[in-house]
Write a protein that binds this DNA or RNA. Structure first.
Lengths: 259, 259
DNA sequence: ACCAATGGTTCGAAAAATGAACCGAAGAAA
DNA sequence: TTTCTTCGGTTCATTTTTCGAACCATTGGT
């Protein structure tokens, strides 16, 4: 494994519930020697990618990410565009909406919007990793991914996160066939109890799937009329977001809901 | 130079005016062999830190920065706090306000706020690098930096960006003495013609300077009364931002304006 | 007082990186 | 149409860097 890849892989151990990590802990988590981790962290620190904090000298992600993220967003304003579209989708459906992007072999929430109307709503966090097999966004992405990517994701151990989580690859593949036909996925309680989500894939300028846009709502609110409204609004704004991002739909992609 | 440092240094060539760079161009800019650059970029790309785009296969910053910046901001909400305080400072002064942070040997704009009142205003961009010798923020930072850092920054070639830019290190040092005494800096037309800026340093929990908060206005509006108003508001909100970020003032720091 | 775990350091051996030279493709110039 | 230049990309003997077992001082818990 290359040295750069090794250093960058250390950054993946930071997440919302573990924002600081000590040297020895990071060595254990990564399986690398403590001296190696120390040296790699020193190089990341010298460039502002990590910094040390507190009496115990733990590490956390550094300020360089703010600048580079701002430059990335200036060049490719995905978050900004997504926020605009999610606000409209939210206004139309009165439910939580979010966009997630593929990053290597994970699906990461880019941004989300809440509807103010209801007392109960589905809550989100950006930068969180979603799974593919048991989220509407994940299923939307797998349905339109290259076959080898889908095979690789379904070959992994699939966590049964809730009693309703489907973990049988054959059943998931059958679901993916239907998602490809309809252009939209849904998931009921597979990732979170009592949450019913719909999602549509998002595409780049070469018709490759890059992520998904989704609407998540408490299952109790999901009357047939409400689901039909959500599907119409999601299709409209999903196609709109792909277009705004300069993307194109793959041939045969379902633009209208089937009769 | 370590391999990780070498790879990360490639990221510094991207900026607002150069959001995509070809392989050969990046080799020329960095002084590294094309094969080396290619290999380093491949490792950055595998982890989502850069991506290739367009027919010419140029590189640009990748989506991984969005996730890691979000995690960083979740852990250390500097941008969020800064935006809150800048909005208030803006409301008080009716001028453009911004916060910049030290990143290695550069000063980088974190965020800014515009006042809606005036037809003319000073415009900003985040993620842009400021210089130390000819900006109010830079002078505020240098005045409270460790002497070796200040010496190193003043030992560099100092660009005469406008006819009013001071480039004589001795004159700048005299200015820094006055900034230390008053706790505030100002700069007239050193970085941008017809712009008069005031700035205050920001400190961390160990009383080290980490950046500056500033107010920038067209020189034509700078009556004595307006300048006094700006200084009072800047001192109040500058001290407030240091406090909100969990920072402490160094001993002897000027908390009140001198009679 | 003792022990365990921390962050940090060293240097001969092992592994990875380097870069001159090369390739095919594409576009510009003659 | 042909030639030339520059591009992104690749190779592998040589060079450089990284590795990690063993060590250190410090700190906190028992």
């Amino acid at each position: 494994m290359g040295t750069v890849a090794k250093a960058l892989s250390l950054l993946d151990f930071f997440n919302r519930s573990r924002s600081t990590i000590g040297l020895s802990d990071l060595a254990r988590l990564s399986g690398l020697n403590k001296a190696t981790v120390h040296r790699l962290l020193s190089e990341l620190q010298a460039q502002g990618f990590v910094e040390q904090t507190g009496a115990a000298r733990e590490y956390r992600l550094g300020p360089a990410f703010l600048r580079l993220a701002a430059l990335r967003e200036a060049a490719v304003p995905m978050r900004d565009l997504a926020q605009t579209v999610l606000a409209d989708l939210c206004a139309a459906t009165h439910e939580t909406t979010h966009v997630s992007l593929i990053q290597n072999d994970a699906l990461v929430t880019l941004t989300y919007a809440y509807a103010p109307l209801h007392g109960t709503r589905v809550t989100m966090e950006d930068a969180e990793r979603l799974t593919f097999h048991n989220t509407a966004s994940g299923l939307a992405v797998l349905a339109f991914s290259p076959p080898d990517f889908t095979d690789a994701m379904l070959a992994r151990p699939l966590e049964k996160r809730t009693p309703l989580t489907v973990t049988d690859p054959a059943r998931i593949r059958a679901t993916l066939t239907r998602v490809r036909e309809s252009g939209m996925s849904q998931c009921v309680g597979g990732f979170e109890d009592d949450v019913h989500s719909h999602a549509m894939p998002l595409f780049d300028s070469e018709t490759r799937v890059i992520g998904a846009i989704a609407v998540a709502a408490p299952s109790a609110r999901m009357t047939p009329d409400h689901q039909a409204l959500i599907r119409r609004a999601l299709r409209h704004h999903g196609l709109r977001l792909t277009r705004l991002m300069g993307g194109f739909l793959p041939d045969g992609f379902q633009r209208e809901e089937a009769a």
